[in-house]
Structures are given as C-alpha cells and as structure tokens.
Design a protein around this nucleic acid. Sequence first.
RNA 1: GGUGGCAUAGCCAAGUGGUAAGGCGUAGGUCUGCAAAACCUUGAUCCCCGGUUCAAAUCCGGGUGCCACCUCCA
Length: 462
Amino acid sequence: MSIQVYNTLTRQKEPFVPLEDHKVKMYVCGPTVYNYFHIGNARPFVVFDQVRRYLQYRGYEVKYVMNFTDVDDKIIKRGLEEGISPQQVADKYVEAFFTDVEALHVERADVYPRVTEEMQEIIAMIEELISTGHAYASEGDVYFSAHSFDEYGKLSKQTLENLIAGARVEVSEKKQNQVDFALWKAAKPGEIAWSAPWGEGRPGWHIECSAMIRKHLGEQIDIHGGGVDLTFPHHENEIAQSEACTHKPLAKYWMHNEFLNLNHEKMSKSTGNFLTTRGLLEQYEGAALRFLLLSAHYRNPVNFSPDLVENAKNGLDRIRSSYANLQHRLETAVGGDAEKVEVETFRAQFIAAMDEDFNTADAITAIFELASDANKYLRQERVQRHALEAYVALFEELMGVLALPLVAEQADLDAEIEALIAERTEARNTKNWARADEIRDQFNAMGIVLEDTPQGIRWRRK
RNA sequence: GGUGGCAUAGCCAAGUGGUAAGGCGUAGGUCUGCAAAACCUUGAUCCCCGGUUCAAAUCCGGGUGCCACCUCCA
C-alpha cells in the first residue's frame, strides 16, 4: 500500500507517486517577515515539516523549498514605524523565524529564497507573461489577465463569473477586469523599488512563488503546500502564472492545512486575536507545542487553548516517562535468553497511519500503545536487556520521525544533586523517613520528581 | 450568491457500512514506609429529522449550529 495524499486539486485522496522515482520536490509558502509569527502560522511549518520528514523516513529524497516574502506593504510600514529599512525589518524577522521554528523542531528547508534576491527571475517571468498575452502593463503596474488562462479557478473550484459576483475587492481603473491580479506594483514616491521595463516598482505577491519554484525546483513539482486560506487567490494565481508559461501542471499534489483557531476564530494579527509562538515558547516547551499540532489531523481545524497545551504536555510526558523508565531498568538489566518482545506491530501501525494522508493523530496512538506495552513489560520482576533495547530503539525511531525529543532539553544533575540523591538512598536504607521526605520535598521545589523503585531512585523533571 | 471545513464521552481526538481506537482529566483499587510512576477498573442516545441497507458515526436527502475563503492573511 502506498502513501495516500489528499489533493485539493481533485478533492480526494490519491496514491502518492512522485514525478521522479524516490525523489520529491516540495514547496511551501513561507512567511512575510514583518513580525513574529503566531502559533497559527506555525501549523503549516510543522505540518509540512512532518510531511517532509515522513517522506524521508519512507526513503524519498526530498528537496524542500520555502520562500520568505521580504518586501511588501506591511514590511515597508513596519520599517517606517521602527525607523529602519525594509531590509532590516526582514532580516530581523527572518532570524526570529529560524529561532522559533527551530524550537518547534522543524528541519531547515534546503533553500529559503527571498523575493529581493530573485528579482531577475521574477521580472523575466512577468516579461514572458506579457509577451505571450497573459499580462498587460497599465500605468506602471502589470496585471495578469485571468480570462487569458482557460483553467483559471480549477484549484478553488470557482468560475470567473462567481468570482466576479462575489468580489469584495474594489474595482481598480487600472485593471481591464476586476479578477485580474497584480504581477508588478508601481512604486509610490520614496518607496523601495526595483527597475523594470515597465517602470520602477516591486513584484505582486503571487509571482514570487511561481518564479522561485521554477528557479529552484523546476517547471513541475510534486507537492505544494500552505494554509487553506492560500487556496484562493494565492495558489490559484500561482497556477495561472506558472502554467500560462509552461503549459504543464505546476504541482502534482496540492496540500492545505486547516487553521489553528483561537477563541474559535482565525488568529489574526489585525484583530489582535493571536498568540505568538515566541511568547508561548516562554511558557511551554517547543516539543509540547509540536505534539499538540500533531495531535490532530492537519486537515481538521483545531481550537487553541492553554488547556490543550497542558493536555499535550501530559500526553508527551506519558511517552517520555515510559522511555525513561526503560532506560532506568536498562542500567541494572542483565542479558538473558532470547525472549521475544513483539514491537513490529507498533511500527506497522505507525506506518499505516502516516501512509493514510499523514494521520499523525493515529501515528501518536501507535506510540501510546507502544508505551502501554512497554509499561506492562516493565512491571515484571525480571526483564531482559535485549527486550528493553527493542522498546527503546522503536521509541527513538518513531519519535524521531515525529521530531519529538524523548528527553526534555535540560542540564544534567550536578555533583551536589547527585550527592543529595545518594544521601536520600542512605536515609531510606536506614528508614530515616523524615530525612528522605525532606530531600524529596527539596527536589520537588526544584521541579524534580524523585521516584523510588526496586531498582533504586529514579528522577525526572516535572 | 459561489467554494470549502467542522459538529464523536468533562476535555482533546481517530474512525467513511458490520453495533464506537487512543490520550488527558475524574473516581475507586493494586503496588509503595508514605509518595510518584505504572497497572487494573470506571465513562458515548457518534448535532437533529427522514431515507437506503440484513447492518450507518460512516452512504443519500433535508435541517440546525460554528468557522473559513471569494480583500493582505497559515
């Protein structure tokens, strides 16, 4: 059974067959770097990171490209507010992006093209569209003529008539038709601008992705991803631009993640209904946030709340403590006969779940069941080294695929703490319960839980 | 007006025809010096009304509620 992928283009799950054997070309729309991204923005970063990691796990060689929109109205505005150049704004938030995304255990893309560094390709593509009659210059702007592309609307299942009927955008005098969209915007006085045959200005929002995909991945790619809101107009327009040039399907599979809402409404910077990822990272471990994002299927909406993070954290802790307990038993375990523990079933369960359109929720269930099985095994008085190792190895493999660290990143205990643990062991041996409790309370105050087991004291961070 | 998504236990969440996975939380129990962890036990008229079927959370029709896109937006 092959991997099944839900394709927005066909509105159904399809077997995943890349254009080229064992290779996957993948593009995901990245951020406009004018601000810290919010936790809703983080969903596609994590979701598509997960898609990529899983494909890699299944043996595909993935080339992953994500763009940075580093020049646009919001960046310019921000620069004016802070008294710095648009480039400085972009640089600042690109750096912040990397920091935050790393905390969520997102693997770096192979290429992060930036609009300002791809100007030649963008201008060349616009020229191509003008020369083939798909675009026209108008008072320094350039627009794509939606009517010139027969299949316009195929991704969002919209007809031009319906789009015109439902349009909320103001009709511009410069456009021949209100559904046409900008490829190039003439610069306002004093604004950052680049020279182009039709005048000074900067690219429209959609053309950058078309140009970058073509340059870094080629005329056709396997997977194009982004949030559902990008389906229209952004991805629809990308298709129009790219396919008008190449006459080939831009992407084989279009994948869209649903939203992570707040108060049951879309997170939005303009209304203030959002929580920055950066802010949440001060309170919660990145792994807990990632776990939360992977706890639901990517095409289902999720309503964010602190309780949800707490829930995710507790679930993650269950897996981690099982793993830690295995490790602890391993310290005293001895070799033995080749007693078989059957863990293959959990790997198979995990793979079956992920194959089904990247069902991370079910994949996590497989890991929970692995934990239950391991916990039951651990209750036995005699355990065997190789059995423990089999559990440990599978935990590491599967949690590795999900990029969820099995051990919270913390400093190791220092000598003083080790000494205290030794003292407590001694206190317990002499049945000095008062002292033993005192030391345990002391650790508790430091956020460390001590657990007494037949194999000695075990400790963990809360 | 057009195009989508969602509605499953206190909470989160899988499940697209064969009478409801998993996690969190709660309560009780076992274990423990006491704990913790773990284990066992504990919980569902699957939004409503029709229909198809031997059989429906799942398919069809009709409702209701919430969210989103058609304007920058993950």
